[in-house]
Amino acid sequence: MSGYFKELFGGTKSLFVGLGITFKYMIKPVVTVQYPHETLVMPPRFRGHIELVGDEETGAPKCVVCGMCQKACPTNCITLTGEKPEGGKKKVLTGYILNFTTCSLCGLCVESCKFDAITFSRDYNLAGPRKDAYIFDLKKRLEEKSG
């Protein structure tokens, strides 16, 4: 019998303690970020999709079309083309397509590039209605960015 009352008392008490805790949290300020109105800045190491890096002066892509990134990618989402301009010695990038739909954001491509020609974007607002919106033409993006 005393066990019964002990359990009853203890149980009821635990319920009121619980109410106390939720009340405490209710009057605390909210912790959420009101997303579309406020946004967070991603830390510098944030791994978004990849982006070509332009030369600081000319704005032309630093990529030398060595193809290491393409080889490193586990899911073959990088397609790049380059050609040697007439008379030029070095290859010039003509197209850099990232198929973001299969990218696993592993970062192996960036690590494998010895020319610092690609980097991670910090953009995370990626949403779109169609799949082909995620076939990024990185060269074009770079050109648009450098204006």
Partner: peptide, 11 residues
């Protein structure tokens, strides 16, 4: 995230 660059599927 600040060290690995991702929040869930770390590598």
């Amino acid at each position: 995230e600040s060290v690995t660059g991702s929040r869930l599927t770390f590598c």
